[in-house]
């Protein structure tokens, strides 16, 4: 687990607790996104982003977590060249931004701070305009691209409808369609499931999993921990403009205190299976056994228990480990950062 340097105004209980030296993250290997000391101080004097070193490995689904106002969106705007960093640098797909914007950005799809389109144009016309704006997109195949993008997010039927008549969920879908107009190497999605109903949320998650399995790197800014746990391989946690934690989800889980709880009559057999799997803090209780989950896959764990002949009548994990970790790191849960 990498923990950023603790100097600064933000209270940093995380550093002492986790106790890993600063800059423990290795920066070698290919990174889809890599920043160094990225800082943004607004003219008002507000320090929105304070020297962060993001590292998103190529192919990762990176959950960018943080309370509202913690600097996630400002960071994303700097990555995409919308804001100029006060200090530090940002590399996207190995090229320095914003200098390489013209070369790099066509390979990146982005949803920044919610969808935004011309209200009096239809969904179709809005996508055609964005396609026309992309000078690397061949004009001859514009209609195919727009059609495919609309189809991918299930908006084909509403293509001719004016954007102003779209529901919040449809707007969000159109925003995702715009990000998917062309095959992308990197997707930067800021709260992509915001405003979607449960069905739409599931569709977006499936879509992300599909894209990720195809090799697309995804940076997913969100404050929904369940979203992170379901789709992300890596996590970065922002708090008051600083990156207070960044690592793979498994490594973060190891830091968390989640326990696996097995309900069974064969309590001691279960405990020995857990021990054999290398799990720690194995305890036998009145109705079963438990241990620290660590980075074990719960499904594989149950399979191993059953394979060893343990009659499993119940299985669960305690708490949301990430949530506990998150509260621990930010010290305030989901409250708005000042």
């Amino acid at each position: 687990m990498s923990v950023t340097d603790g100097a600064g105004p933000a209270p940093a209980p995380a550093e002492q607790a986790i106790g890993v030296p600063a800059d423990g993250m290795s920066h070698h290997g290919t990174a889809a996104v890599s920043t160094s000391g990225l800082t943004k101080r607004f003219r008002s004097g507000q320090l929105a982003v304070d020297g962060i070193d993001l590292h998103v490995p190529t192919g990762a689904v990176y959950g960018f977590l943080g309370p509202n106002g913690s600097g996630k969106t400002t960071t994303i705007r700097m990555l995409l060249g919308l804001l100029r960093p006060t200090a530090g640098s940002a590399d996207l797909l190995g090229r320095t931004m914003p200098a390489a914007a013209g070369e790099v950005l066509p390979r990146i799809g982005a949803l920044v701070e919610g969808p935004a389109f011309h209200p009096y144009l239809s969904g179709w016309d809005n996508l055609m305009r964005l396609d026309a704006a992309d000078r690397t997109a061949p004009a001859a195949t514009a209609k195919d691209r727009v059609l495919a993008a609309l189809d991918r997010v299930g908006l084909t039927a509403a293509a001719a409808k004016r954007y102003r008549h779209y529901s919040l969920g449809m707007r969000q879908r159109l925003g995702i369609a715009a990000a998917l107009l062309r095959p992308r190497e990197l997707l930067v999605l800021d709260e992509p499931t915001n405003g979607l109903d449960p069905q739409g949320t599931r569709e977006v998650r499936t879509l992300l999993a599909e894209l990720a399995s195809g090799g697309t790197t995804v940076v997913l800014s969100t404050h929904l921990l369940s979203e992170v746990e379901q789709v992300c391989t890596h996590v970065g946690v922002m708090h008051r403009g600083r990156l207070v934690a960044q690592d793979s989800l498994g490594a973060l889980r190891r830091q968390g205190a989640a326990r696996a709880i097995v309900t069974t009559t064969a309590r001691h057999e279960a405990a020995s299976v857990l021990t054999r799997l290398g799990m720690t803090e194995v305890l036998v209780s009145a109705d079963g056994a438990g241990a620290l989950l660590g980075d074990q896959d719960p499904a594989a764990l149950v399979a191993a228990l059953v394979h060893a002949g343990v009659p499993v009548t119940g299985f669960g994990t305690t708490g949301t480990d990430l949530e506990e970790l998150f509260v621990h790191l930010t010290g305030e849960g989901f409250d708005v950062s000042g």
């Binding site: 060249g81 013209g102 990146i108 701070e113 935004a116 209200p119 715009a178």
Partner: peptide, 17 residues
């Protein structure tokens, strides 16, 4: 005002263009 400017710029449309 609409927010479409940020999407044009990340498409990307060069600012001079």
């Amino acid at each position: 005002n609409l927010g479409t400017l940020r999407y044009l710029l990340v498409t990307p449309v060069d600012r001079a263009r």
